[in-house]
């Protein structure tokens, strides 16, 4: 009897210690739509919510669109305005998916693991499937997830004269990083 209570306590303690769903509210997303004509359209958001289930590989991000900060106030105003991100109507952008090769990552062993992330990106009210390569870095208790990919703005119905004029990239680069 004593042995079974001890085993149960051990299982519970282990479960708590290695909770599978890790979250952070300070993940970062960088958005770079610069071109040779204009170096201004790039922004960062440092208050992104992210979660990673280390057992199933489920990965999710939520970003407040108005939290993307540009160096130039006018560019930020355009970014949030009508025809662009329409952030009053679509205040958040999100990603929900999973790391398809999560079994390749050993969360108890330090190292940099190459992963493939598949899921759906919701931006400007439009949801599109997305797949990208990324890395998971394990360093002691710290788990870092990072990925770089590009999207086509027209896929998300983001249009504007500056895109046509070549001042904003048609396919901006997005860098995501989260430390759990």
């Amino acid at each position: 009897m004593k042995k079974s209570i001890l085993s149960l306590a051990l299982v519970l303690a282990t479960g708590l210690l290695f909770a599978q769903k890790k979250t952070t509210t300070s993940a970062g997303i960088n958005f770079d739509a610069t071109t040779s004509l204009d170096a201004l359209p790039k922004a960062e958001n440092k208050t992104v919510i992210a979660s990673l289930d280390t057992k199933t590989g489920k990965l999710a991000f939520e970003a407040t669109v108005k939290s993307f900060t540009f160096s130039n106030p006018k560019i930020q105003e355009h970014f949030n305005g009508k025809g662009w991100m329409d952030s009053d109507q679509f205040p958040t952008a999100s990603f929900a998916g999973s790391i398809s090769n999560i079994n390749d990552v050993t969360f108890t062993k330090d190292g940099i693991y190459n992963v493939t992330v598949k899921g759906e990106l919701s931006l400007h009210g439009i949801v599109k499937p997305i797949e990208t390569k990324g890395t998971v870095t394990v360093n002691g208790k710290s788990i870092k997830a990072a990925a770089n990919f590009s999207i086509k703005l027209e896929d998300y119905d983001v249009k504007g004269g500056a895109i046509v004029a070549g001042k904003v990239s048609k396919e901006p680069t997005i860098s995501v990083n989260a430390e759990f």
Partner: peptide, 19 residues
């Protein structure tokens, strides 16, 4: 103040500030 929203990940409200 950027704005407030409900997080489906954390299942709670949050308000984010910048600069």
């Amino acid at each position: 103040c950027s704005n407030g929203a409900f997080s489906h990940i954390l299942e709670t409200e949050y308000i984010s500030f910048k600069r």
